[in-house]
């Protein structure tokens, strides 16, 4: 059986229906309040986010800058765990219809048990997983079949330094979208989209990959969102939203935040 026939989830339907200007938003589960996960998700959907990435926090997030590190530590201090997150997500599909991905580091997932993690994620209605420190080799050897069995997409990252042959391989292994990093950097660094970055976006576009692409890292405002979506199917806002969550009355002001990026 091919990968395509195994995986037909909300992500695939979304990319079929809408090809451009998709907006995804990342936030860390348990931040700024332990039990606000679904409230934030629901507000984002209502405000017009097309899909969501919910971060499961890790003590040592090496690919993240200070903003997401801080939110992760706060969430852990408040008592966030994978068990609690899955408990919170039990009502996910009663409240939210857009695609949802879980994003985090390999160790909490491995410690929880990858099989158990995937089963739980599928059970609550999660569509895919992004684990930046789970490399292609290990995924293929150890986890690909488990992900497929539970109809979960694994999302790979591509950076400006990723070689063409590897991008082709990633395209082959992917079954919903490819996450393009705007630059080789940790999260939350402000980005000016330069000619070099644009030529990298163009290079990827010209490769005519079979999977849609979404650009993330450094997408903090409308200008960056517009540049990114000129080259890819969508863009991901992470640190900028997490920073926003640290401000007052964040829940009722989520529409305002989304408007500031998307309008």
């Amino acid at each position: 059986m091919s990968h395509e026939s195994l995986v037909a989830n909300r992500l695939n339907s979304m990319f079929e229906e809408k090809k451009n200007n998709l907006l995804s938003v990342y936030f860390t589960a348990g931040y700024p309040e332990l039990n606000a996960t679904l409230d934030i998700a629901e507000a984002l959907e209502k405000a017009g986010a097309d899909f969501l990435e919910i971060g499961f926090p890790y003590s040592d997030p090496v690919a993240d800058g200070p903003t997401i590190q801080h939110s992760s530590q706060k969430a852990l201090d408040a008592g966030m765990t994978l068990n609690l997150l899955f408990e919170q997500l039990k009502e996910l599909r009663q409240r939210i219809s857009i695609p949802v991905l879980l994003m985090g580091y390999a160790n909490p997932m491995v410690q929880y048990g990858v099989e158990r993690f995937c089963a739980k994620a599928a059970e609550v209605g999660v569509d895919g997983v992004i684990v930046p420190d789970l490399p292609m080799y290990e995924y293929e050897q150890l986890y690909k079949d488990i992900f497929a069995k539970h109809n979960l997409s694994n999302i790979f990252l591509v950076t400006p330094q990723t070689a063409e042959a590897r991008i082709r391989k990633i395209d082959e292994l992917s079954n919903s979208f490819i996450y393009l990093l705007s630059s080789a950097s940790i999260t939350g660094r402000s980005l000016t989209i330069s000619d070099t970055i644009e030529s990298y976006f163009q290079r990827i576009k010209d490769m005519q990959l079979k999977n849609p692409t979404v650009i993330g890292f450094g997408i903090a405002d409308k200008a960056a969102y517009q540049k990114a979506t000129a080259y890819a199917n969508g863009a991901i806002v992470g640190s900028a939203f997490v920073k926003f969550l640290g401000t007052e009355n964040y829940l009722e002001r989520i529409p305002e935040f989304i408007q500031s990026i998307k309008s």
């Binding site: 090496v62 690919a63 390999a106 490399p135 950076t159 330094q161 990723t162 590897r166 990093l181």
Partner: peptide
């Protein structure tokens, strides 16, 4: 093994 983000792969 090498459990590293793609940014460090090269």
């Amino acid at each position: 093994g090498a459990y590293i983000p793609e940014m460090l792969y090269p």
